[in-house]
């Protein structure tokens, strides 16, 4: 087995240029639709680097289990797979990077080997090895895709729950989009952190951007308001559209003693009154409003 591996490594070393050329040709064929995305210089560089690392690792240990020896190959594959995942390659195209090495490699092995037995042994050993490496690239590919998705999810969540200070002690929480339990949780956390941070006494929850309010959403809103109240802040709900007011009443949702206002402007006026402030026209104003 070990001798086989060294033989293969020797074959690779002798025919490196040929193998590389054919391999890249194969890669291009398999990923023809995306050939524009990746330059052939990049492909050449990655392929040649992989061949070098691969044959070096083969000389050391052919079983592909030794982490110290194969770690470098795996790291290299990881970076290739990750960059391809971000560039928009499909998983099979990424895995083909490794699998397409088989054909040129086996061809050289056939030319070089003396008996059918040694050839079969070498081919079998290389197949298992390359298969495991190919699967590894697919795995890394999926993992990096998942990372991207998770990151986007987090960004979306952060983006959708801003807490803004309208005046000293008055916070506004403009909600956009559907409220589900996970979002409610992050909304609640953000609001409570905001109350502590700004030492707010009043929070206005504006639901103009919430498309529908069903019993569940109302339940979530009530929970948020109850939590804010426990922290000593009063909540005002604003931006209830007529249709939503109708649904709330039809569903029989009890908003309790929560203050509701039709518009954010009305809510702000009430909030300011509650903190002992008000809005008055300036004498020097143009009087346009």
């Amino acid at each position: 087995m070990n001798k086989n591996a060294t033989d293969v490594a020797n074959v690779i070393a002798r025919h490196k240029a040929d193998i590389l050329k054919e391999w890249i040709q194969r890669q291009k064929e398999s990923a023809s639709s995306l050939s524009g995305i990746m330059s052939s210089e990049d492909a050449l560089e990655q392929s040649s680097q992989f061949l070098d690392l691969f044959s070096a690792a083969l000389n050391e240990d052919p079983s592909a289990e030794n982490d110290t020896v194969w770690g470098e190959v795996r790291t290299m594959l990881e970076s290739v797979s990750r960059s391809r995942a971000l560039q928009g390659f499909s998983p099979s195209e990424t895995a083909t990077f490794v699998f397409s090495l088989k054909q040129p490699l086996f061809q050289r092995l056939r030319q070089e080997s003396k008996s059918a037995d040694t050839l079969a042994d070498a081919v079998w050993a290389m197949t298992t090895l390359l298969d495991s490496l190919g699967l590894y690239t697919a795995e890394v590919f999926l993992r990096s895709r998942e990372q991207v998705i998770l990151q986007q999810q987090q960004e979306l969540l952060d983006l959708s729950t801003p807490v803004v200070e309208l005046y000293r002690g008055v916070l506004a929480l403009p909600l956009i989009g559907t409220l589900d339990s996970e979002r409610t949780h992050s909304v609640m956390e953000n609001l409570l952190e905001g109350i502590v941070h700004h030492e707010a006494a009043i929070a206005i929850i504006d639901i103009t951007g919430v498309p529908t309010v069903d019993t569940l959403v109302a339940q979530h809103l009530i929970k948020t308001i109850a939590a804010a109240r426990l922290m000593g802040a009063e909540c005002i709900i604003s931006g209830i559209r007529p249709q939503i007011a109708q649904t709330i009443v039809h569903l029989g949702v009890d908003l309790g003693d929560v203050t509701t206002k039709a518009s954010l402007a009305e809510a702000l006026k009430l909030a300011l009154a509650k903190v002992g402030r008000g809005i008055a026209p300036l004498k020097t104003g143009t009087g346009l409003s």
């Binding site: 956390e189 409570l192 502590v196 939590a227 426990l230 922290m231």
Partner: peptide, 8 residues
Amino acid sequence: PAVAITMV
């Protein structure tokens, strides 16, 4: 905040 959420 964490306590308020738990209580609710």
